[in-house]
């Protein structure tokens, strides 16, 4: 720890450097996508101090879902990462508004999901209305890229995913719902 602290120069206090650390923290439920790619980290602030010693780092995060059980773990992992890199003065804020949307997921994040076998969210569309028996979204199979797929359940292994099956390769897969 002490060597690490000595290594901290002014550069490592930059917001860009903190964003870099955040990119190394992964979603506990989908371990291929970082909390930055997921759009959970909304803001990083480094408050300046007179001699730049012990500046305060403020991270603002937003939950994907109100009841997302991963949020506590994510908050803890952010804390751990900052501590590990010698930052002790920190605050983690949770913002609910504006509400998280899958549109905040980065293109890179969506690609990583696909590679992991989870169909990434389509751009937000009609599913965000309460009308019953809507036409299900066309979701591309992450395994064989076929569009001929069907929804098996609106709720998959976690609240943010729906369960689909491919009619071509028969593989079931999770779809990260538009939200």
């Amino acid at each position: 720890m002490s060597t690490k602290q000595q290594n901290i120069n002014h550069q490592s206090f930059s917001e860009a450097a903190i964003w870099g650390l955040m990119r190394q923290i992964y979603d506990p439920e989908i371990p291929v996508i970082s909390i930055v790619d997921l759009g959970i980290v909304r803001a990083v602030e480094v408050s300046s101090t007179v001699n730049n010693l012990n500046p305060k780092i403020i991270i603002t995060i937003t939950p994907t879902y109100s009841g997302c059980p991963a949020m506590d773990v994510i908050g803890m992992n952010i804390r751990m990462s900052l501590l590990e890199h010698g930052f002790k003065n920190m605050e983690i804020k949770t913002n609910l508004s504006p509400a998280w949307t899958t549109d905040w997921m980065s293109a890179e994040g969506k690609e990583k999901l696909r590679a992991f076998g989870i169909a990434p969210p389509n751009p937000s569309q009609s599913v965000c209305s309460p009308a019953q028996f809507q036409e299900e979204e066309v979701v591309q199979c992450p395994h064989c890229n076929a569009h001929n797929t069907k929804m098996v359940s609106r709720f998959g292994s976690t609240a943010c995913k729906a369960l689909y099956q491919c009619n071509e390769c028969q593989e079931p897969f999770d779809y990260f719902k538009c939200h």
Binding site: P63, Y65, S66, N95, L96, S97, P98, A99, W100, C128, A159, H179
Partner: peptide, 10 residues
Amino acid sequence: ASITEKALKE
């Protein structure tokens, strides 16, 4: 307002 905005989507 912000809690309910978030909840409405669910």
